[in-house]
Design a protein around this nucleic acid. Structure first.
Length: 642
RNA sequence: GCCCACAUAGCUCAGCUGGCAGAGCACUUCCUUGGUAAGGAAGAGGUCAUCGGUUCAAGUCCGAUUGUGGGCUCCA
């Protein structure tokens, strides 16, 4: 950790500053580079807690760095065009922490090409070419780009003209920026000259479809980062490195939580310690569900094609399903639990008095994700959700959604994550009567407004059978993850499976089905927790909550005795009876991120006390065994996060 | 699925232009009986992912397969 010093300089700002408005032509004049100094806050920024998520987040001022990074992208393009004549240019935008540029090249780039490109970029920066803005008519720009044989740029111009025509708005002026020998169609803005570009580094190459479309050519993307000072660049690279160290795939091995094997790609093998975390989360959720009126069910994993045709999955979701044949009949491993719960609903005549009927299920699901999409625990082919289907009368819906939002906040408070909410509406690919969709969307919107939680809208981001509320959190690396989901279904379960209940008047009515998962996929949830806590789980979740460390062999029996006292309180405790020295045992427990280490020698045994040391290195006062056990047990049952 | 890279001991990795498979940690045994982040010594451990090819000779070069990693619209 030699870079610790540079860490303190990392500024702490809100993670997602609002995006700058589209600059007008006047504002495109590059600001002097010195101007950015004026934005340095007078007061010392808060120093993030060691190992905290904040420490790893980029709170850098993307706003000020934007034009510089965009200029770096142009210099990258200049270098690549110079080294690989005939290169076709794609786009080169600024992204969080850096920039990229997409190219169609005579051959694919490998990581070995990057140093040469960087060297060529440095030459351009040393030459300090000014960025010169020129404006063309669309026709002249089109002709110039055809002349320069840049088909992707021509496409961009043509699209701009086309969309201007559709909107009935005038075609915006077409601008080019030139630096030295290189000229590029570009909206700007840029810094004054290439010399103003700060310390940079190319980070890697990747294939990227032109406009993200699999039907279009695969371009070569080069990613880079650039900063105002060398120190900031170093700090960024250090953060990147630290982020890798808390990657759940790495920690999963180090902490002996889970592993992956090529005999079942995309599916985790859970080791005893990982399984303990799993069971603990599951137990907590079951406790919540019992308290809030759920009833748990369990339905088959292997289900006939007939069911999936009825539900609509066979048409809408088949590419994600694993299909199995038996005796000339087709079955699928279930990708969702929902349709089967209707069989339990329909197993008897339902009265309006039975609703809400809350059926929870920890179903094992299989989804055939594309091989390239698999990634650790966060994108898997087999997973278990803390799923539930809640059947309600229309008049109960709003209250039920409010209760669910409350459940989400409760569950996320156990792990110290802040949920935020998004309202996702009808997608293009949807089943059912549009009128029902409209109604469902209205009901969700009302419930959100009534509950007073802030939310954003994600148009067309609903599932094929329901609009929904999605719950997101930001992980330690600043990535946003979709976690919980609350879906209001008037279409699939109620209509397609003809669900009814009898109302007060004896009439048959349609219930509404709410699909909801709070953790979401337990696999992904645990993966995100590993990164969020950097493996140091709060006491209630830690797979091993305390290690008892006998100083010498003669203390081993007493250590066992103390462990039994703690276990009797339901605590997960190990005794390190190895032949290693005490210091070594402490280090080993520390590396496994065990919350408490209890050293036991002559003094403690005589006094029947425990001297706990926390993984934070804090030496706590010696307490009688029972007092210590009670204290830990209380901390566990309160699910305190520290 | 597509582009690039990678795959060597349980883990982290070294092994150059082909010439007898290595280190640290972990593990086992022995010595050490200790006071809050690594005591010492010895030993055991590998079909170099799989299959095929080139070669007198392949961990190393070539091809295929499998798996893993970085990515695949923050649109000039």
């Amino acid at each position: 950790m030699t870079c610790k010093r540079s860490l303190v300089r990392v500024q702490c700002r809100p993670p997602h500053p609002s995006r700058p408005e589209h600059p007008t032509m006047v504002e495109q004049v590059a600001p002097p580079a010195e101007e950015s100094d004026a934005t340095v806050p007078d007061a010392l920024p808060d120093v993030p807690v060691r190992g905290s998520a904040d420490e790893l987040m980029d709170h850098g001022a993307a706003g000020e760095l934007g034009p510089m990074r965009h200029s770096a992208a142009h210099v990258l393009a200049e270098a690549v065009l110079d080294l690989f004549p005939g290169t076709k240019l794609g786009i080169g935008p600024v992204i969080a922490d850096g920039f990229y540029y997409d190219f169609l090249l005579p051959r694919p780039l490998t990581p070995d090409d990057l140093p040469a490109i960087e060297a060529r970029m440095r030459e351009s920066i040393a030459a300090d070419h000014p960025f010169e803005l020129s404006e063309e008519t669309p026709e002249a720009a089109h002709a110039a780009l055809v002349e320069r044989d840049q088909p992707f740029k021509v496409e961009i111009i043509d699209d701009l003209a086309a969309s201007a025509a559709t909107d009935g708005t005038p075609m915006p002026p077409t601008t080019f920026y030139r630096q030295g020998p290189f000229i590029d169609l570009c909206r700007g803005p840029h810094v004054a000259s290439t010399g103003k570009i700060g310390p940079f580094k190319l980070l890697g190459t990747a294939g990227a479809y032109w406009r993200g479309d699999e039907q279009r050519p695969m371009l070569q993307r080069v990613y880079g980062t650039a900063w105002a000072t060398q120190e900031e660049l170093d700090a960024y690279l250090w953060r990147r490195d630290e982020a890798k160290k808390r990657d759940h795939r790495r920690l999963g091995v180090q902490l002996d939580l889970f592993s992956f094997h090529d005999v079942s790609p995309g599916s985790a093998f859970w080791h005893p310690k990982g399984q303990r975390i799993w069971r603990t989360l599951e137990t907590a959720m079951r406790e919540l569900q019992e308290r809030r009126g759920y009833q748990e069910i369990s339905t088959p994993i292997l289900v006939s094609e007939k069911l999936w045709r009825q539900s609509g999955h066979w048409d809408q979701y088949a590419e994600n399903m694993f299909i199995v044949e038996s005796e000339k009949q087709l079955f699928s491993l279930k990708p969702m639990n929902c349709p089967e719960s209707t069989y339990i609903y329909r197993s008897k005549k339902r009265s309006y008095r039975d609703l809400p009927l809350r059926l929870s299920e920890y179903g094992r699901l299989h989804r055939n994700e594309r091989s390239g999409a698999l990634s650790g625990l966060t994108r898997v082919r087999q997973f278990i959700q803390d799923d539930a289907h809640i059947y309600v009368r229309p008049d109960q819906l709003t209250d039920e959604i409010e209760a669910l939002l409350d459940e989400v906040r409760e569950a996320y408070s156990w792990v110290g994550l802040e949920p935020h909410f998004a309202f996702a509406t009808k997608p293009d690919k949807a089943i059912g009567d549009p009128a029902l969709w409209e109604r469902a969307e209205g009901l969700i919107h009302d419930a959100l407004v009534r509950s007073g939680v802030p939310f954003i809208e994600k148009p067309k981001d609903g599932t094929f059978y329901a609009p929904k509320i999605d719950i997101y959190i930001d992980d330690a690396l600043g990535r946003e993850w979709q976690m919980a989901t609350i879906q209001v279904d008037l279409v699939m379960l109620p209509e397609r499976f003809d669900l009814t209940y009898t109302d007060e008047a004896g009439e048959s009515q349609r219930p509404i089905a709410i699909h909801r998962a709070i953790y979401g996929s337990l696999e992904r949830f645990i993966g995100i927790l590993v990164e969020h806590f950097a493996g140091a789980f709060p006491l209630w979740l830690a797979p091993v909550q305390a290690v008892v460390i006998p100083i010498a062999d003669r203390h081993a029996d007493a250590a066992q005795e103390l462990a039994d006292v703690l276990r009797a309180r339901g605590l997960r405790v190990e005794v390190d009876a190895s032949s290693n020295r005490m210091q070594y045992k402490i280090r080993a427990a520390q590396e496994q991120k065990v919350p408490y280490m209890v050293v036991l020698g002559d003094r403690e045994i005589e006094a029947r006390t425990a001297s706990p040391r926390t993984r934070a290195g804090e030496q706590q006062p010696a307490d009688p065994w029972d007092t210590f056990a009670d204290r830990l047990a209380a901390q566990v049952s309160s699910r305190s996060i520290d």
